[in-house]
């Protein structure tokens, strides 16, 4: 049976899905978590550190939602505060210094929404990440493993390769929020989810991501092994790329009206011309 967009939203939010830390444990060895933004505090919603990918040292950054109720509260349900984004940025700059590739795992309903978060510059923290990541001179790969909620997700996804798990979602606004604005009725979230084109298949169609990662054997060692091999292969390609930064800029530069996939589709174009004649 085909899953609807909203089914996928529910799967992506599911409690039993592997979280950021599971991916780190499954794919990397010798992970050492590094804490703190060196400005104010340490945000538990973002877990970051150094590790080996096979024999290759890498910097790993993951948004972690937590498992138990207690842990989820501690990690503010995977909604990072500005301190989390600043920690991520600090470690990304460190990665650039030591020429380590950066791997990000994104799973958030959005950046944390609170009085403190606003007072500490949530918008500024995200903006600085977007700007700096665009010119970090090391390969960056981001994988959306669950929810990809708006700017809070994008702040770790300005990358050379972006992948999504089969049932992950990536959206500018939550379907509930969208339904609330459009129809003043959050219960129409399922309809909104379909309109927002937030599934991995949609993202691939619009060229937002490079590939969809299959969820066969999700959470098992073969699953992580598959992702590991994919990462190693892509890092090999990216490490050889002399125009890494130009290509990263172009990757995002193309998202506009020029690449409207409807215009590119030759079959559709023919029918339009046909109807004019």
């Amino acid at each position: 049976m085909n899953k609807t967009a909203y089914d996928k939203v529910k799967i992506a939010r599911g409690n039993d899905r592997p979280t950021g830390l599971d991916f780190i444990r499954g794919i990397f060895t010798d992970f050492l978590e590094l804490h703190g933004d060196r400005r104010y505090s340490d945000d538990a919603a973002i877990v970051a550190g150094v590790a080996f990918l096979n024999s290759l040292p890498v910097t790993v950054i993951a948004i972690e939602k937590g498992r138990s109720a207690k842990e989820r509260t501690l990690r503010s349900f995977g909604s990072p505060n500005p301190e989390g984004y600043r920690k991520a940025l600090r470690l990304m700059k460190q990665a650039e210094k030591f020429k380590r590739p950066i791997i990000c795992f994104v799973d958030t309903s959005g950046a944390y929404c609170g009085i403190e978060a606003e007072a500490h510059g949530q918008g500024q923290a995200i903006a600085e990440n977007l700007m700096t990541m665009m010119t970090l001179n090391v390969p960056i790969i981001s994988i959306l493993i669950g929810e990809g909620g708006s700017g809070g997700a994008l702040a770790l996804a300005v990358a050379d390769r972006v992948y999504m798990l089969e049932n992950a979602v990536y959206s500018v606004i939550s379907p509930e929020g969208c339904a609330n604005i459009l129809w003043k009725d959050p219960s129409k979230a399922a309809q909104a989810a379909a309109c927002l084109k937030l599934t991995a298949q949609d993202a691939l169609y619009y060229g937002i991501i490079e590939d969809i990662l299959s969820e066969t054997n999700l959470g098992e060692s073969t699953f992580y092994q598959r992702i590991k091999e994919k990462l190693l292969h892509e890092l090999d390609v990216l490490n050889m790329d002399p125009k890494l930064l130009d290509n990263r800029y172009k990757r995002f530069r193309k998202f506009g009206m020029q690449n409207d996939p409807k215009e590119k589709d030759p079959a559709e174009k023919d029918t339009i011309q046909g109807s004019v004649e």
Partner: peptide, 17 residues
Amino acid sequence: GILSLMQMAKTSGAVKR
């Protein structure tokens, strides 16, 4: 939708350059 979100990265890249 998601194409709007990408504009944040796109404009930030241009500002940075």
